[in-house]
Design a protein around this nucleic acid. Structure first.
Lengths: 114, 114
DNA sequence: TATATTGGTAAGGAACTACTTACGAGTCAA
DNA sequence: TTGACTCGTAAGTAGTTCCTTACCAATATA
């Protein structure tokens, strides 16, 4: 947990995003997570370790089970990085909508198909 | 551009995020991007290729220069995925703030340091 | 106590990533 | 036309990722 390596790297793998998605519901033991996604238990353990290191999950030992719980705060870094692009793409969306509206206008002459 | 491979993978590498950040300003030729980040030109080309494939950039040939331009729309996928977590972490933030407020309250007895 | 369950991790290997150097194509300028 | 510039890509390589199987420790159950 101290090393806190790249969150972007942590969410890059589909299997790890699936794990995070599953952990949104509730904390879950490895056994359950592994069964759910047809991923072998060792592979699941290894992905979970990476999520731990990225600070995206915590573990809670209960008997022989190890429950993993979502701690989504590090995702804020991704969110903040994305924020710079959101205005950008909404501008582009507006421009696109404008262009489509213009096309729509110029098409009203030759209303024909459909 | 047709294959459109994983956007999450595309933004996983710091060098590619730097490239995207640079492209937010304006379209830029490879030469300029490579010079800017002390990354070799071939390496830059290879990263840009990946961004192209992910649909995060387009290229425009002008003479012997190749200008790359940001097309951030595919980031919407990341944004939408993150949206599910934002309520989650804002709830956690609220809970944290509540806890801190309680601690603050119980501390008002022994007001001492700072 | 013996046995089954749960899980972490080591070891090994296939596939992938990210760099380098080398080269060739296309463009521009003298 | 010659030489410099810009760029993509091939080839090679070191390092990393992601899986597997095998094993051991800890815990629960019969």
């Amino acid at each position: 947990m101290m090393p806190e390596p790249d969150v972007f790297q942590a969410i890059a793998h589909p299997a790890r995003r699936q794990l995070l998605d599953a952990l949104r519901e509730r904390e879950q033991p490895v056994r359950e997570l592994a069964a759910r996604f047809q991923v072998s238990r060792p592979a699941t353990s290894q992905h979970l370790r990476l999520l731990l290191d990225a600070g995206l999950a915590t573990e809670r030992r209960a008997g022989r089970e190890n429950f993993y719980m979502l701690t989504p705060e590090p995702l804020v870094e991704v969110s903040e990085w994305l924020a710079f692009y959101e205005t950008f793409w909404s501008d582009r969306m507006k421009a696109l909508r404008r262009t489509l509206a213009e096309l729509e206008g110029s098409r009203s002459d030759r209303e024909s198909r459909q």
